[in-house]
Design a protein around this nucleic acid. Structure first.
Lengths: 152, 152
DNA sequence: GACTTGAGTTCGAATTTGCAACTCAGATTC
DNA sequence: GAATCTGAGTTGCAAATTCGAACTCAAGTC
């Protein structure tokens, strides 16, 4: 193998692979997207995604095991107690992954005439984008980065 | 369905779903990661990922169809012409997705004692992270964003 | 002429997913 | 107080994916 692009030594295990092994299957990211977009209940998620009920059951349980979601009881008015799936902090920390996918989808997948989904700052109303920043807030362009192993 | 978190109206088709339908399967992101990390040839990728050869063949072809990769001839010295898979611009534009996964993996999946993989600025050597920026370079925190549909 | 290498094919077995129907407990209706 | 509805699953079987290992095939090498 010749010239490498961003990295010379890849740690074992590779953190990106670890991430993909947890959430890189056909459904988990889609379920997370639904959760970010406000869906919380079994039937809502099932209908929104068109996933089969049996698979959704399994995926929700593994997502709870992985601590991406939490099964929380709630009541609407005086109805009986039900359960909904809420994003945990670990789950919420995947927001940037979703936003990165969103930017890429807007750029490469949305056809002219269709609608994009843009991220705006609630306060200023300005458009918001993901950028690479050094610790003292300088912007860095992608081609100027390198990946290095470091101790946890 | 009650209170939504980041978005009131989701455009149809949703750009995030479009993205996940293209690259959200079990292998494509892993193959992309391998490409970002410098692997370009069939056997190298196959060995690195432990994917079965038949599936890799199919995935590489669909990735070429989707214009994520390009099959490019090359020669090493005077050897016969071979082919390697290179990231296209559309493929390279997924870097932020990979970096977001990397940050998440570092934070939540790397065990103490194992190695993280950190992103640094080639010039300053400083650590680099993904951040949300408005168009005039103000940082925004995740909870202060909203998603709105917009015309393409 | 036999061997090696990269890049696949082929094929049967194992795993995952889909679909439709069934369950089951708590509310609500008649 | 029996029948119905609703949310959140199970169950069982068919269809689609993936795996592993062996086989192919064309170039180039010994």
């Amino acid at each position: 193998m010749k010239k490498e692009q961003w990295v010379e030594t890849i740690p074992e295990p590779c953190p990106v692979l670890l991430a993909l092994e947890e959430i890189g299957d056909r459904w988990i990211m889609q379920i997370l997207r639904a959760c970010f977009f406000g869906y919380r209940r079994f039937d809502d998620i099932q209908e929104n995604l068109g996933i089969s009920r049996s698979v959704l059951t399994t995926k929700l349980h593994t997502m709870v095991d992985l601590q991406l979601l939490e099964k929380v009881p709630y009541q609407e008015g005086s109805e009986r107690t039900r359960y909904e799936y809420q994003l945990t902090q670990k789950g919420k920390d995947l927001l940037k992954v979703i936003l990165a996918l969103l930017e890429w989808g807007n750029k490469h997948l949305v056809q002219p005439g269709e609608q994009m989904l843009t991220t705006i700052d609630k306060e200023s109303g300005q458009e918001v984008r993901l950028a690479l920043l050094t610790s003292d807030h300088q912007r860095v362009r992608s081609r100027n980065i390198r990946l290095v192993p470091s101790e946890r």
